[in-house]
Design a protein around this nucleic acid. Structure first.
Lengths: 209, 209, 209, 209
DNA sequence: TATGAATGAGCGTTCATTCAT
DNA sequence: AATGAATGAACGCTCATTCAT
């Protein structure tokens, strides 16, 4: 059931040539397209290979199992997402904590909204693999970035910054995910974002030394 | 992909005899066991029937599709969960808002923790069906209950109780779900629950008229 | 594969009571209806029993296999058909041979046309059983009747009446069956009947002593 | 019930390589063997594939459904049969009408007799598909050939050659089919062929201008 | 005697994976 | 290195038949 799950986010196999990288991209894009167009059930190796314009055989040189393809797909998505969060954290270093929260929520929310269909499709692709390692690695990267950011706030010092950070990150990410699961109107979603920010700010107010 | 999705949470077919009800229970329990032990991939009709101690044919007298079994499984789970939330809301009617929040979080958290494995397994079973109707119905029931509860608080009146309610419910449920997705230590989980409550209380403080 | 095939056309089991006969009739009628409405594929024991208003168990008291039901269905049909041919033959005894031929063709053609759908459905039901004995018995009955009729013609004596009879019966029945297999217009069918009669008369002219 | 039925008799998919053609032949031959040995009920995809020495998967690369295999089987058979009739018609062009009839009957009868078992097996395979289009196409081809042949006879002109042709073809083919359905002795069959020819000749005598 | 829930062998079909070319 | 035809285990599901009630 569980796929061999390397604990790192580094790509399993570095493409040696531009050609390989292009093929890899084509496969990823194809997989995503199939997933979006026809759902998880239609995500067969042949279908992906066909849409990517390569043979199944070739695809099996890049991915030893179907699971490894799905794994890599999620890896890639989380890689980009983590990058965005890190960029925001860097940009917010040393700024007031209220701004940090707004920026973090905004970044994550937009990342999920931009291609909401992809987000949802990937959530569903997770059944096919053991994503624990992936999630763990993502969490570690994000935790490091947000903890550093929070620590740099000039207007707040926290007794247990790791705890505050865990709470904020879990609440923000969990809320955003949940908002996607329910079929909320755009208006409700916008309002929800505002409330979430208010809540986080109120919490930080409490928690700051 | 999508299963025929009745918009209600009422069981599709009332078992006529005690014998039938027992069989139905055995099937549900078997499906859950398989799901827990071997994951979604192993949840085949034969396997479930075998473990339930009935023949496939019998299983197909209770469920027209494999999907309908999974659907019913989730229906059942959400039914119980919604019932617990409603009970809590009834019990907290007229009590201080801070108590309400503590009780709601406690109830939901415990429900998820009691059989955390089941919770996780069911989250994953969702790929196989269209659970939109189910989630919607669950959300409506819970929203009604929590909104009524909040409205009854003697120590708080809200400008837009529906908005406050939506925010609280989404944050609480989302956070708890997210806490489960990550592999947190029990200590971290306990601490998180405390923080979540603090955050919700701070938010309500802000929102109350 | 082959069903136990009694060589006679007599019913396997004489219904003792009116009740039984009614049930039997209901089963036959139900089978025919299902066959007509949904084809051979839909002809399941449960479906027939349901439509007949009895339980499968009861049906299995009348017919030991599904095949025996189909067998009996064909038996019944051929019984009626043979009866019609025999009646015609009796009626035509001693009449001119040209009249005999016209009457025989007319009788058989009308029998097939009256419920053309039943005819076709039954043709198709034959896959499920070994109808050799049935066909043989039918052929014998008809041969006896037609041979006797031909022998009684005042205006013709045949060198080998059995041969002439075999030729006529095979040609007439075969032609009519074939006419049904092709999708001919009503006009074509009518014209064909006329030609068939002409052909048979010309043949008899030749064959008569 | 009905299979997608292309209105032509041309093969659906040209095998690209000699290897493929061999496989296709093996599958056809296997299907025929199973049909002959064990009847329609035993004609399962696995059984055919096994006997053909290929895997089910391979079989499904040639035929999208079980039905399409049966369809192709009949298509192939009728193709050969129509070819034989056409060849005879070409050979008999311009010859006396009595010779034409003898040749046509002889050709058709021999074609059916050569592999009488195959003939009978295929008759039975028809339940599984909608052979209307197939039969129609066959009829059209044969009608065209025989009508042209009859029209070329130097010793006969017909008022309505299409009508005469329809009568002859229906009678001949129907009679021959019927002769196969009954379990006639070889002697009876031979005699029948003679009588059929006599009948057709007598009819043509009548019909010729 | 009549019932219909239960059975389970066996069906048609799919698709991840391999390997000869 | 790339291909895609071939494989076959395993799936979801059906339905003739049985037998406890």
């Amino acid at each position: 059931m569980a796929v061999a799950a390397p604990a790192t986010l580094t790509p399993r196999k570095k493409p040696r040539q531009a050609r390989s990288a292009a093929t890899l991209d084509a496969i990823f894009e194809a997989a995503l397209q199939v997933l979006l167009a026809d759902g998880m059930r239609a995500l067969t190796t042949t279908r992906v290979a066909d849409r990517a314009g390569v043979s199944v055989g070739t695809m099996y040189q890049y991915f030893p199992h179907k699971q490894s393809l799905i794994y890599a797909l999620n890896e890639r998505y989380l890689e980009v997402l983590a990058g965005k969060v890190e960029a925001t954290c860097r940009a917010q270093t040393g700024r007031p904590v209220a701004d940090m929260l707004a920026a973090l929520i905004e970044t994550y929310w937009r990342a999920k909204t931009e291609r909401a269909d992809v987000t949802r499709a990937l959530y569903r692709s997770v059944v096919e693999m053991d994503n624990e390692a992936l999630v763990e690695a993502f969490a570690r990267r994000v935790d490091a970035a947000t903890t550093a950011m929070l620590g740099s706030a000039p207007d707040a010092t926290f007794g247990d910054v790791r705890m505050v950070n865990l709470a904020l990150v879990t609440v923000i990410f969990g809320t955003i995910r949940n908002a996607f699961e329910r079929n909320l109107s755009q208006a409700a979603i916008d309002a929800l974002q505002v409330e979430l920010l208010a809540m986080c700010r109120a919490y930080v107010e409490l928690a700051r030394g």
